[in-house]
Amino acid sequence: MMTRALVAMDTAACLRVDGDPGAATAMAAAVYDRLPPAHRTGLEAVGWGPCRGPHLRCQR
Rank of each mutant, 00 (worst) to 15 (best):
V46S: 03
M1F: 09
L43H: 03
T11L: 06
R4T: 12
L56I: 13
A24G: 04
A38Q: 14
M9D: 03
V46L: 15
L15P: 00
G19D: 01
D18H: 08
L15Y: 02
R4F: 08
C58T: 04
G49C: 06
H39D: 15
H55F: 04
Q59F: 03
G47Y: 05
M1E: 10
L43R: 04
A29I: 03
A29F: 03
M1Q: 11
D33V: 04
A12D: 01
Y32I: 03
D33F: 05
G19T: 00
A23H: 01
P54L: 06
P36L: 13
G49H: 13
M27E: 12
P54R: 05
M9H: 04
L56M: 09
V7I: 15
A29D: 09
L43W: 05
L43N: 05
M2T: 08
R40V: 07
L43T: 06
M27A: 13
R60V: 12
T11R: 06
P54D: 08
R4W: 10
A12S: 09
R34M: 11
V7E: 14
R57S: 12
A30V: 06
E44H: 11
C58P: 00
L43A: 06
A5L: 08
D20Q: 10
G53L: 05
P54S: 06
M27Q: 15
A26N: 12
A5R: 07
Y32H: 10
M2L: 14
L56S: 12
A38V: 11
A23V: 01
D33T: 09
D20Y: 00
E44Y: 04
R4G: 14
G53A: 09
T41K: 12
D10C: 08
A30H: 11
G42H: 07
D20A: 05
D20S: 10
G42S: 12
G47P: 03
A26D: 09
E44N: 15
A38L: 14
A8I: 03
L56C: 04
D18K: 13
M1D: 12
T3M: 11
T25V: 04
P50Q: 11
G53S: 12
A28S: 14
Q59H: 14
R4H: 14
V7P: 00
E44C: 04
V17P: 00
L35F: 04
G53P: 02
V7M: 09
A26T: 08
A23I: 01
T25Y: 00
R60M: 07
G49R: 13
G47Q: 10
C51V: 02
C14W: 02
L43D: 05
P50G: 14
P50T: 07
P21K: 00
H55N: 11
P50L: 06
A8P: 03
H55C: 11
A45I: 08
G19R: 00
A26S: 13
H39I: 07
R16M: 02
V7A: 10
L43V: 14
